[in-house]
Design a protein around this nucleic acid. Sequence first.
DNA 1: AACTTCATGTAACGAGTTACATGATTAT
DNA 2: ATAATCATGTAACTCGTTACATGAAGTT
Lengths: 193, 193
Amino acid sequence: MFRPFFEKSDIYDMDVGTLCLGALDMGDATGYEIKKMFESGLFSHFMDASFGSIYPALTKLTDEGLLTCTSQQQERRPDKKIYSITKAGREALKDKLLRPLAVDKLKSEFLFTMLFADVLPAERVAALLTNRVADLREELSHIQAERDSELTNGQEFVRRYGEAVVEASLKFIRDNRHLVENRNAMREMENMR
Amino acid sequence: MFRPFFEKSDIYDMDVGTLCLGALDMGDATGYEIKKMFESGLFSHFMDASFGSIYPALTKLTDEGLLTCTSQQQERRPDKKIYSITKAGREALKDKLLRPLAVDKLKSEFLFTMLFADVLPAERVAALLTNRVADLREELSHIQAERDSELTNGQEFVRRYGEAVVEASLKFIRDNRHLVENRNAMREMENMR
DNA sequence: AACTTCATGTAACGAGTTACATGATTAT
DNA sequence: ATAATCATGTAACTCGTTACATGAAGTT
């Protein structure tokens, strides 16, 4: 009988605090800059967080001694708070990264919608596909833009992974959109086989 | 200047209620069966929900007239409640599906972890990759198992999409794992280029 | 014996988002 | 004029999960 060697509560939860720790492991940054990292760049492809969760997380992590914070005065603006990860912070991050991972789950509104392609107006389906292609192309160009920068092996692996998946999606849509766009063409192909 | 033609609140939110409506559009089911659909089968690849959200959603949807419910008595078990989507329910679903979509976002703990491959123990990285391959293989076999069933074009599109992405991921890992597994090999390859 | 499947439901809790507060500067 | 960028922070809210309650039948 299979007995799990870990409890559910042990499963590594990629919460905002951990995300911030990860971001700061790559260099000092402010909360604002961390948000930007989640919006563009390597991180953006598989994580997200809002200011409303980043700022409190940063405060909490600092209280716990996992980060240090230096304020930099600015004129006519709130002080810039530059956070740095501490040794304890690096250890806490590494600790989290050694825990069992949950299987990733994609939440795709696009795929959910495509499930009903047959009952949706043809223009809607076409627009959905076209937008999707545009989004993927944009994502691809962002990913490729990061090619030049000096990345660790891990970062480069992740970058290429994203690139590969986006390229495969793009190719798939190119090759298969007729299936949902042109319903008659589909039936003809079925018959030809 | 760009003026958005829709408000944020208009953006289609794939909440549990909508997921249930979608599931029931494919045929009558109980809450328990809907949960199973989210755990395996076509739906499972990009959505999820627990009993704690499915049952209340079903009750709410019924109150709103989007579903009807017939109880089926059972011996020594709670009555089976079979839900059917109503005409109003189908319209509500279609309505939702016509709203602007948010760009999908993958939350991947695997990729987040791989970002730090360089500072993680080699065995951890190897195990991560091996587990990932196993998970993907399993997912692929599930997706392929659905091949025979009679699917609508939309469903078949989604099935093949999942298949294509999983295959691409598998191929990617096969071709690129050396990048994070064997750090010296990586450097040698870099020099050879 | 112990666990899984069947079957529904509720309450407590948690982690996040959205919206607000504040406000100068620069780009369109 | 209007909006976006910079910059931080808090409070209300939302949506969902987890854990519990209940309990028989079948599987390992």
